[in-house]
Design a protein around this nucleic acid. Structure first.
Lengths: 197, 197
DNA sequence: CCTACCGATCGGTAGG
DNA sequence: CCTACCGATCGGTAGG
């Protein structure tokens, strides 16, 4: 029992350390010997906790994907306007990222190093998530919440570009709370920078 | 003479092919043997055109940086409102990226693999560029073009996040012109998605 | 979790 | 631009 518990937490340690290393140097440039050194063990010993380097990447990418999916599902259930759904969806996304900025950065920048068929599965999850945000924006255009003449594809790509780069420049010891940041991003996207006249 | 010309164009071929490879697989995962194969020569032969793998990365990153810098300088010279400067700056940035989307992607995602002191120099160039956009936004807040209560740092990070991810999803055979795309991005940032009431 | 080790591949050089 | 080759490092296994 105690052994199972400590094995689990050791495995989690390995994955967390690996996430930091993958974020810092990139997946390919991060070696298993680097990782072992960070943990104070020999490289060969890593393999009693994980099956392969790529298994770590898979865990990081698909766990984050599941969290994003769950967050969006909650928002979709709500009976609110498209504008409010978009706002809540953005805040939810930011909150999920803020829970683990390191894993978020790996999710964003290193997923391309997944091999098949995992890469394909990952990309399908991602396109599905993005399309569901696109649907919300389209609902907003139909309902009159948003302008008729916007390019919804461009809007949704702009949104995700902004969202996904957060891990790169959002400092974990920043004073701003994720909720507040999500609110500001949402406001900027919906209302723009322009002074109302 | 003819030798110099053909050497130059061969070197450019090497760099262009390398850019494609770096974009596709990432700098670390892209091997010099991959690159040689794409060019139909032996790996060792690459070194009569370039000094090292990193020299290629340096060329790609610093050439793009120079182009962005030149574009912004042109805009800063103009005697127009902050809102117009921001608009022109965005369009200029998009145009520079559109001239070479592959090199732009490498510039964005692979610069971290530069070694010192090049990495430091690169980051200084980038922060300078971003700060000059931030100054334009601050001018707009002072002049009343933009809202008083915006977080200018967040605004400029949002802007660059959107801009810089363009190479990842903008298809080169897209029907939309860079100028038009820059215009739309600029409009979205300044006016937002919201329907005017 | 360790020692000992493997085959593969890396960026790059010597010499032509 | 090639052949021949180098030392270093890679992810991972065997066996304890």
């Amino acid at each position: 029992m105690a052994e199972t518990i400590s094995n689990l937490s050791r495995k989690e340690q390995v994955i967390r350390m690996a996430a930091e290393l993958f974020k810092e140097k990139g997946y390919s440039a991060a070696s298993m010997r680097d990782l072992a050194q960070k943990l104070g063990i020999e490289a060969a010993s890593l393999y009693s906790h994980i099956k392969s380097k790529e298994e770590i990447l898979r865990t990081l990418c698909f766990d984050m994907a599941a969290d994003f999916r769950a967050s969006l599902l909650e928002v979709e259930k709500k009976n609110v306007s498209a504008r409010e759904k978009l706002r809540l969806g953005i805040i939810g996304h930011v909150k999920v990222m803020a829970r683990d900025l390191t894993a978020s950065a790996v999710f964003m920048n290193e997923h391309r190093h997944l091999s098949q068929p995992y890469l394909r599965d990952f990309l399908l999850l991602r396109i599905n998530y993005i399309n569901r945000f696109k649907t919300i924006i389209e609902e907003g255009v139909s309902s009159g919440d948003f302008k008729k003449d916007i390019d919804t594809k461009l809007a949704v790509m702009t949104l995700f570009s902004s969202l996904n780069w957060m891990p790169a420049w959002f400092s974990p010891d920043s004073t701003i709370e994720p909720e507040k940041l999500g609110e500001q991003l949402s406001d900027m996207l919906i209302n723009g920078l322009k002074q109302k006249v």
